[in-house]
Design a protein around this nucleic acid. Structure first.
Length: 423
RNA sequence: GGAGAGAUGUCUGAGCUGGUUGAAGGAGCACGCCUGGAAAGCGUGUGUGCGCGAAAGCGUACCAAGGGUUCGAAUCCCUUUCUCUCCGCCA
């Protein structure tokens, strides 16, 4: 959520910056609601001031033994008027908040301008894509042929865009999860959390999935709960409504969770394999940072994601997303893209974002400025570290052999019970 | 699922027979005194949001959330959420 005071002060500039995003944004409604709201507040607070003043006098009148009936009659009328105004204020408040909830974060001023992923800026590359001297297979064929992935039965059990891991495939997935968590906790200083996989509406609103993107989420109607689309939601909302000790910053959490997405609007895209499913596993990293440190934290967060691919020795590149491609809540985002031989290009495997105070304002997550002792919003960051299904796909494809077997990356072998290859 | 108890500020903890209670006491924090330095001790200060204002400040709201009763609600009533205890069921 953007700061209404900032919007009020220079709406043109904010509107211009918002419109470097994909889509058109107007602050007209917000400004009108804000003005209406302040008008009502002026009136109703004056009435309340009078009500309070008279209320204070009543005990004194009673003590003197005076008749309060005329005062009561007058106050009853005032009370009714206040109630009416208050209702109007509440409705306006709600309308304003709702309008604000639909406005995305302001892109950071320094990120590259652009309309789509075609305009993203490559920041760096690591590793050389391997040259194969045989016809390569895509991971869904490799997995099916080795009987470690089973898409048909997953479709039978549930439906399209679900997958099942079997035997060494299931073990490889578990090894990857464990490997990532160990690295983030032991080497990168994150605290592991095992959060609920189901979250409530307030949490989804706090991180920005709701209200605008409700159709993307799996909804449990009876309880009004949602299957978590990313551990960013439970992790960031861990501190919703709290004031975090400044000395504890940055707070760094990592979690493994399954993630559930409706993938509404992506029909026909990445229909095969592990790239785009309704359910997938992900290890997530979330940070709460002091405002003046958050961009340094974004760099290290991205490095923490990269470290996984470096350890697995799989080539990747890092791109800075342009204004037209960054997500709703993000001010700046780096995508880590892994080399996927069957696609013949780099494919997103992690998205690392600084949301600045956008989520913190929605979710009311604050700290105390040590200088002034005043409360201020923290900055929140999140990044995948990494998407497990896509990592598994990248391992299969990059480590495939001419005979269709898979060599297991060195660093994963001890977590696979010493297994060196899958055949 | 049944019966009961509870939810107060950064934390802890009073108030809950309705009216100078934004809310006692304590802790913490900040500043000052004391000290060679620190601790202890003493003194002072210390909530948040919103509105108006250049500012000082003034006003207003907030005692889990929402509604109600009342001239007036942290205090009374209802609903919801959460926590705890007991019973039942259960991995």
């Amino acid at each position: 959520m953007l700061d209404i005071k900032q919007i009020r002060e220079n709406p043109e500039e904010i509107e211009a910056r918002l419109n470097t995003r994909n889509g058109e944004f107007s602050l007209k409604d917000v400004l009108a609601l804000d003005e209406k709201r302040r008008d009502i507040i002026g009136d109703v607070e004056q009435m309340k001031a009078k009500q309070n003043a008279v209320s204070k006098e009543i005990p004194k009148l009673k003590k003197k033994g005076k008749d309060c009936a005329p005062v009561f009659a007058e106050m009853k009328e005032l009370s009714a008027e206040i109630k009416e105004k208050d209702d109007e204020l509440k409705a306006t408040d709600e309308a304003l908040r709702n309008a604000l909830l639909y406005i995305p974060n302001l892109p950071n001023n320094d990120i590259c301008l652009g309309e789509s992923d075609a305009d993203n800026r490559e920041v760096r590359r690591w590793g050389e894509p391997r040259q194969f001297d045989f016809d390569i297979k895509a991971h869904w064929d490799l997995g099916t042929d080795l009987d470690i992935l089973d898409f048909e039965r997953a479709a039978k059990v549930t439906g399209a865009r679900f997958s099942a891991f079997k035997g060494a495939g299931a073990r490889l997935e578990r090894a990857l999860i464990n490997f990532m968590l160990l690295m983030h906790t032991n080497e990168h200083g994150y605290t592991e959390i095992s959060p609920p996989f189901i979250v409530n509406r307030a949490s989804m609103t706090g991180t920005g999935q709701l209200p605008k993107f409700e159709e993307d989420a799996f909804h449990l109607e009876k309880e009004d709960f949602f299957l978590t689309p990313t551990a960013e939601v439970p992790l960031t909302n861990f501190h919703r409504g709290e004031i975090i000790d400044y000395d504890d910053l940055p707070v760094k959490y990592t979690a493994y969770t399954p993630c559930f997405r409706e993938e509404a609007g992506s029909a026909g895209r990445d229909t095969r394999g592990l790239i785009r499913n309704h359910q997938f596993d992900k290890v997530e990293m979330v940070k709460f940072a002091a405002p003046d440190k958050s961009y340094d934290e974004l760099e290290s967060l991205t490095n923490d994601a990269e470290a996984i691919l470096q350890a697995l020795e799989i080539p990747y590149r890092v791109v800075e997303l342009c204004t037209g491609d960054i997500g709703f809540s993000a001010a700046k985002t780096y995508d880590v893209e892994v080399w996927m031989p069957s696609y013949g290009r780099y494919v997103e495997i992690s998205s690392c974002s600084n949301c600045e105070d956008y989520q913190a304002r929605r979710a009311n997550i604050r700290t105390r400025d040590p200088e002034t002792n005043k409360t201020m919003f923290v900055h929140t960051l999140n990044g995948s570290g990494l998407a497990v299904g896509r990592t598994l796909a990248a391992v299969l494809e990059n480590y495939q052999n001419a005979d269709g077997s898979i060599t297991i990356p060195q660093k994963l072998r001890h977590m696979m019970g010493g297994m060196e290859e899958i055949r």
